[in-house]
Write a protein that binds this DNA or RNA. Structure first.
Lengths: 185, 185
DNA sequence: GGGCCGATGTAGACAGCGTCTACAGAAGTT
DNA sequence: AACTTCTGTAGACGCTGTCTACATCGGCCC
């Protein structure tokens, strides 16, 4: 296996195991058993390596869409929503990295393509469901963007620490149920 | 004015002007005209200084709730939602800092109190509006958490770069309108 | 008033970081 | 066989946060 791929793999493991702060160029190099300068032979800098890692994160997220349970479009959309939240809560560091524009290179073509693919497949799922919003004539892509944002905010807020201090600590699934209720009627 | 307050002010200005990456302990010290070690006489470390800055961010966000336009509870709730999104888009660096748990000390009492206050006042606004969700018997605080998350996701997603690559770039206000439609009927 | 002591600020050091450069060997091409 | 390109190493640089040693100033007690 090439050094480049080994670096991406090592970085992914380090990310999952030690968190986003641990994903340092020198740390990755050491964990991969190469010198601290070796990564720069395969990536222009830290952002490019982390972009490759984040791209795989988007790919993993997209792969979950391949096997959604449910018979109706509605059931598969709710499954996709649960899947998104579950991905974020199960892989918090990866999820954080994927949306940290100071760590990744937003102009990386592979990265933005992978991110767009995630949104696009979500939009397709939304378009297949006759939500009240859709019946009232709203732009379907706008509905998809709005619902994705709602999901995303749920994930971010609970990873952030949720309403932990607010004398009221609902489970993310309970909040998701309310969100889905709002959108799907 | 004490050095401590000057450091917080300088950090806030640096944050707004140069972004979150520029808010470095040494940079703040230099901008404030003190030696690089001086901040440690007033804060236990970077996290404590940035927590003070973020606390002021939450206070500013809360202050916007004092003067919400609108006669009905519903109008004031939608105004609060617009206000939240506007705050995030107008002060992107501050908004980012407020939710970057690697930069602030989540256990800081003043910080978590300020954050909780923001949620609590929002929950009060939500409780005053007879939304379809409320009429169907959903827990009002859960509705507030869900709607806040939706708002928050909207802000995060657009600051992140939005759906810029998705051959479809809606305005955040358009998406917010859909979101409000979903929740408020 | 004189002595003392905590609070505040400075300067230097240290390890860790990302990145750059100089150098070495391996591999492939002409 | 000679030359060039690729890949990896080692060292340096400037930046970071944090720690420590030292100076100074202000208030308080006797």
């Amino acid at each position: 296996m090439g050094t480049r791929q080994r670096l991406i793999d090592t970085a992914s493991e380090l990310l999952a195991g030690e968190g986003v702060d641990a994903v340092t160029l020198r740390g990755i190099a050491k964990a991969a058993g190469v010198s601290h300068g070796a990564p720069l032979r395969h990536f222009s800098g830290r952002a490019e390596l982390l972009s490759a890692v984040a791209t795989r994160g988007y790919a993993d997220l997209l792969a979950r869409r391949e096997t959604l349970p449910g018979n109706s479009p509605r059931e598969r959309l709710t499954a996709a929503c649960h899947s998104y939240l579950d991905f974020a809560l199960t892989n918090p560091a990866m999820f954080e990295l994927m949306f940290r524009r100071d760590l990744v290179d937003a102009d990386d073509p592979a990265l933005s393509a992978a991110a767009s693919a995630v949104f696009d497949t979500f939009a397709v799922l939304v378009a297949a469901v006759p939500t009240p919003l859709a019946r009232s004539g709203a732009d379907l892509r706008l509905v998809a963007a709005s619902l994705w944002a709602a999901l995303h905010g749920l994930a971010q807020l609970w990873l952030w620490g949720g309403l932990a201090g607010a004398s009221f600590a609902p489970s993310p699934e309970a909040a998701l149920a309310v969100t889905l209720d709002a959108y799907l009627g």
